[in-house]
């Protein structure tokens, strides 16, 4: 692997770029990490309704200090608020929304994404790890559009966008679009296709750090 590119998007810019692709009126489920940042970048002229799988639509930002309720939390178990129009529901209803195709967009993190859309994001496969899956498999099985936002490579420089996932799968053929600090990339029937490059990044830069062929921008 070559040295990491000096240019490219920050975490916040990645979140902002994802936010551009979320249409007005969408019901959206955001994963933990960079996906959580997306809500603050949705353009003001759009109304986006956030679902949290522990049981609420209409989730708002974290409460002011001292104003929170330990029983009003998001899927990351952090305190949140309920916006006007919010609703609470039990877990079977919450996952009926997910599995039943009622959620428009899910934004997840990733350990690996393959060029056929396979996603691995729940297990590092290490023998002494405590296996934990949460709602990731339900989200990628049932949500209409599954977006992944992730660093382009692992901390030790290995590509996360690969020909075949070597880690345990979360879902088969489920990812629609990938956002990294270098580029926006679609998963198509022909494989990975570049949609947009971050400033200062070239197709060659991205290809060098991608473990499968990358088709040029259409």
């Amino acid at each position: 692997m070559t040295k990491a590119a000096s240019n490219g998007w920050t975490r916040e810019q990645m979140a902002q770029r994802v936010a551009m692709d979320i249409p007005n009126g969408s019901y959206v489920n955001l994963g933990i990490g960079i996906p959580e940042l997306i809500a603050s970048f949705v353009p003001e002229d759009r109304t986006v309704i956030y679902h949290t799988e522990n049981g609420m639509i209409g989730m708002g930002p974290p409460p002011a200090a001292g104003q929170g309720d330990p029983e009003l939390i998001n899927a990351g178990k952090r305190q949140v608020t309920a916006l006007p129009g919010a609703a609470y529901f039990h877990h079977a209803d919450s996952f009926a929304m997910i599995r039943g195709g009622h959620i428009d967009v899910s934004v997840l993190g990733a350990l690996q994404v393959a060029h056929n859309g396979d996603l691995a994001n729940w297990s590092t496969g290490e023998p002494d790890a405590i296996p934990a899956v949460g709602g990731a498999m339900d989200l990628c099985a049932g949500v209409k559009r599954v977006y992944v936002v992730t660093t382009h490579c692992t901390k030790d420089g290995q590509p996360k966008l690969v020909a075949t996932c070597t880690l345990p799968l979360t879902g088969q053929g489920v990812v629609d679009r990938i956002y990294t600090e270098m580029a926006v990339i679609d998963v198509t029937p022909e494989g990975f296709r570049l949609v947009e490059l971050a400033p200062g990044i070239t197709l060659d830069d991205v290809q060098q750090r991608t473990g499968a062929p990358l088709l040029p921008i259409m």
Partner: peptide, 15 residues
Amino acid sequence: ELELTPQGTLAERIR
């Protein structure tokens, strides 16, 4: 012993 179940599958098994 651990029986790991996806969260939505856990909810639906209970329902």
